[in-house]
Nucleic acid binder design. Structure first.
Lengths: 149, 149
DNA sequence: GTATCTGCAAACCCTTTGCAATAAG
DNA sequence: CTTATTGCAAAGGGTTTGCAGATAC
């Protein structure tokens, strides 16, 4: 069994909630995404196989976040996106303002900054998100060719 | 005249757009906010004085962002918030998961990381946002007193 | 004069919720 | 058995848009 399933069941148990085949299906399909996804993508994938409703997906997402299996990703296109957390290195995002591509990266100094800054203001940190915006290599190259933009 | 007004008019000029009293009013009221605000707060403030419609505010916000006068702030409460940019040091946010308070901070290393990371992947950066989540001093103290939470 | 801008109200779209039926423990 | 969960469809709530009249230039 996927480790996600076990982790999620344990989380449900701790909260006095129940395990269901719908929740199993949702957790299983999330593992299939290797990058970002949104509710609609997840719904289409699950509906085909199992017939889980969108309402159940929306109701399950907060639980998945609490369990540490996914995190929210802001992509500035009007609705929420998510990404799998388990088994992936912590990383941050470079987002292209033009083509919206996301490039992932990680830098060990960020953990340090998180800890130090939090300590300075008496904050107990549990994570951070860094997003760098600008132009990806492709769009930057195109921009150079037509300087009037 | 506030520097914001001039900057905004110049931006409008460059894009072949027109200056209007509604846009002036919006820019002027934004300068009144010293921290975060949302469309509703701005609307209530402006409506009282000038009677600018919400639609015009929504239509003006993208222009204000382009002009570099405000930036979006994600506060995880279902709608977008903004903050003034001009005349403020660049800073990032510590957000309390419990009481939603925002603490601002800045760290010079972030500029460096932005530049280095971007260079590494061939990205042309134009800014970054760092958000650290966790518990603010008050909520952390309360949490200690009732360990069962 | 012409193209942009405004206000209004309706439309949109993602997300949440009430309810009756179902299922987990 | 009791309480949580599901699917459906309707409601919610922030944001966008069509349109006719007003206005900048």
């Amino acid at each position: 069994m996927e480790p996600e399933i076990e982790i999620f069941r344990e989380h449900l148990g701790k909260k006095g909630l129940r395990n269901t085949k719908e929740r199993d299906a949702i957790v299983r399909e999330i593992s299939a995404f290797h990058d970002h996804f949104d509710v609609d993508q997840l719904y289409l994938l699950i509906k085909k196989k199992k017939g889980v409703s969108k309402a159940s997906i929306y109701r399950t997402i907060p639980l998945l976040i609490e369990a540490g299996l996914i995190t929210e990703v802001y992509l500035e296109d009007g609705h929420m996106h998510y990404e799998r957390t388990l088994g992936r290195d912590h990383h941050c995002h470079l987002r292209c303002n033009q083509c919206r591509t996301i490039i992932e990266f990680s830098d060990p100094r960020l953990q340090e900054i998180e800890r130090e800054v939090a300590q300075k203001v008496g904050f107990v940190p549990d994570g951070h998100k860094l997003e760098i915006t600008g132009l990806c290599p492709q769009c930057a190259a195109l921009d150079k060719r037509r300087p009037g933009a």
